[in-house]
């Protein structure tokens, strides 16, 4: 049954993930100097940059994968509310926490896989001598990885916003806003020994809230 749930979640999410992936392909093509794109977007992409350091790669990840995180989190929850399909899904003979855990695992995987592939492809390209007139070392990708590890927190915030009903849209988005603020604060932590525990606190907090609301909310 978990397989069936996973397939269902993937089928429902793959469209959004594909859109984000397309966005990243476009950004990578620009960063890698694909000529047609460079002609159209000559002011956006530049040759005078260092890969992952000042080329705006993390900005593109933030835009496309951040968008995916928000849209996916809301779609997996509010969309089911809107179509009343929770009544069908949650009356299956399976524990509610398993239903929501499956949704979250699929969502987090998609939000992590898209930037991870982008970092891997772009890093591999930048590491090939002669491709980019700038030095490259894999340690330069650390900030991008940091972002990729932080974006699932935004996804979980959106997921909680979609799950938790409120009187009006503004208050419903409080968990998403809180997750974004926490993600920005965590990302700006200057040391990894500070970044990792703060990130873990964020994940634990939002996951506890999600499972609490999943068990106690009215659907």
């Amino acid at each position: 049954m978990i397989k069936a749930l996973t397939i269902k979640e993937l089928r429902e999410s793959v469209g959004l993930a594909a859109l984000a992936a397309l966005g990243m392909v476009w950004a990578l093509a620009g960063l890698m100097g694909v000529q047609p794109l460079r002609f159209v977007m000559r002011d956006v992409f530049s040759d005078q940059t260092i890969a992952f350091v000042n080329d705006g790669f993390t900005g593109w990840v933030g835009l496309f994968v951040g968008g995916l995180a928000v849209a996916l989190g809301l779609k997996q929850t509010a969309w089911e509310h809107g179509r009343d399909t929770y009544y069908y899904l949650l009356s299956r003979p399976i524990a509610r926490r398993v239903v929501f855990a499956t949704k979250i695992v699929v969502g987090v995987l998609l939000v992590v896989v898209v930037p991870a592939v982008a970092i891997g492809v772009y890093g591999f390209w930048a590491s090939i001598p002669g491709k980019k007139a700038a030095p490259f070392d894999w340690s330069m990708t650390l900030d991008a990885w940091k972002l990729a590890m932080t974006l699932p927190l935004v996804y979980l915030g959106a997921f909680l916003s979609g799950l938790r009903r409120a009187r009006w849209f503004g208050t419903r988005l409080i968990p998403l806003a809180a997750a974004i603020i926490w993600a920005v604060l965590v990302s700006s932590a200057p040391f990894y020994w500070l970044y990792l525990p703060l990130l873990a606190v964020g994940y634990v907090g939002v996951l506890v809230a999600i499972f609490y609301f999943a068990e106690t909310s009215d659907f």
């Binding site: 009343d84 399909t85 009356s91």
Partner: peptide, 25 residues
């Protein structure tokens, strides 16, 4: 349980809905 309005996953076809339902029982 059949909820009001018969909510099902509209993107599925009937065969997929049957396979999805069967997986839980």
């Amino acid at each position: 349980y059949i909820a009001e309005g018969h909510p099902l996953y509209n993107w599925m076809n009937i065969g997929e809905a049957v396979r999805f339902g069967r997986a839980f029982y």
